[in-house]
């Protein structure tokens, strides 16, 4: 029982980061029908800034806001430089554009920074544990879960209680109709990218802390987890994205724990089998959203 509880907390901690990443992916997808494979760059670029900052005497108190702010700015720049050029294009064009952004950013760091690992110190508290009965709970997991709850609450408030949120939800439901009703497309799209960047920035803080290093392709893994979680939850569904992230994190940790010794290294494979089964029975994901066909 204690092992299960331990794994649940570990899984929720991991899943919370996935949830934040997935939510950022879902926000943009809802507005633009863009499955953003450049979402990981919102971690790669802040990751390199983290490396730079520590080499210039910064500490985590100053690096954390740097990560969040740089993720927001990066997201807005990517929208302005790349996606605004192809706004209204087919989903496939948008998808290819996002791949292009990813490869350009990776190649840029590869060519002009380094191909190798760039390490920086993790925060001293990141692996500390709290003993609760027979459980050893990582403080890091507790902080991640707590911050995620606060951020999700804030995001919910933003989407439900503000004009921006109303415009965003309206645009996500039917972009053209929202425009006819007076929603400014530029503002809502930039707002969506800023929100996506903010969520990636918060997730990035924890991701970057745990990694302790950055490489040109550092964004691939978080991007894949974010996209995968968004797909599991149901593309375009914000609640689904959160649910998908938590489900993915729990599945990874629980499977790793439950699989017999000898096949534990197939954990990722089993996760994908579960996802495949999910899509067989619920092709739209856990909380599928009716898609409005654009003509």
């Amino acid at each position: 029982m204690s092992e299960l509880l331990q794994n649940l907390i570990d899984g929720l901690g991991r899943g919370s980061i996935y949830a934040l990443l997935a939510l950022g992916v879902a926000v943009v997808f809802g507005i633009m029908h863009l499955l953003n494979f450049a979402h990981g760059e919102l971690i790669t670029i802040p990751g390199y800034l983290t490396y730079w900052a520590f080499n210039n005497g910064w500490n985590w108190w100053t690096v954390v806001p740097l990560i969040v702010v740089s993720a927001v700015i990066t997201s807005l720049i990517i929208e302005r430089v790349a996606f605004s050029r192809v706004r209204g294009a087919s989903d496939f064009t948008l998808l290819l554009t996002s791949f292009g952004v990813h490869f350009i950013v990776s190649a840029g760091f590869l060519l002009y920074v380094s191909a190798s690992v760039k390490p920086y110190p993790r925060p001293t508290w990141f692996a500390k544990t709290l003993a609760v009965g027979s459980l050893n709970i990582e403080v890091f997991d507790l902080v991640v879960i707590a911050v995620t709850v606060v951020v999700l609450a804030g995001t919910t408030w933003l989407l439900q209680r503000t004009m921006f949120g109303l415009a965003l939800r309206a645009a996500a439901a039917d972009f053209d109709a929202a425009r006819l009703m007076g929603v400014k497309s530029d503002s809502v799209i930039r707002g969506a990218f800023a929100l996506s960047g903010f969520l990636a920035g918060i997730a990035g803080v924890f991701w970057i802390m745990r990694e302790g290093q950055v490489t040109p392709t550092a964004g691939i893994n978080p991007m894949l987890q974010g996209v995968l979680a968004a797909l599991i939850g149901g593309l375009g569904s914000l609640r689904g994205a959160v649910l998908g992230g938590l489900a993915l994190g729990l599945a990874e940790v629980l499977l790793r724990s439950w699989l017999p010794v000898g096949i534990q290294n197939l954990t990722t494979g089993f996760v994908f089998v579960m996802i495949a089964l999910l899509f067989i029975f619920r092709p739209g994901g856990l909380l599928s959203v009716p898609q409005v066909e654009r003509v």
Binding site: E3, Q6, N7, D10, G13, R14, N136, E138, D141, R210, E211, G212, N221, V253, R256, S257, V261, Q264, N265, T267, T268
Partner: peptide, 21 residues
Amino acid sequence: SEQTYTWFVDTDFSSQVNEIA
């Protein structure tokens, strides 16, 4: 103890550490 992981990817070893402990 013999544990598995994904080379160059994993940085969260909570499950493995629980078993090792």
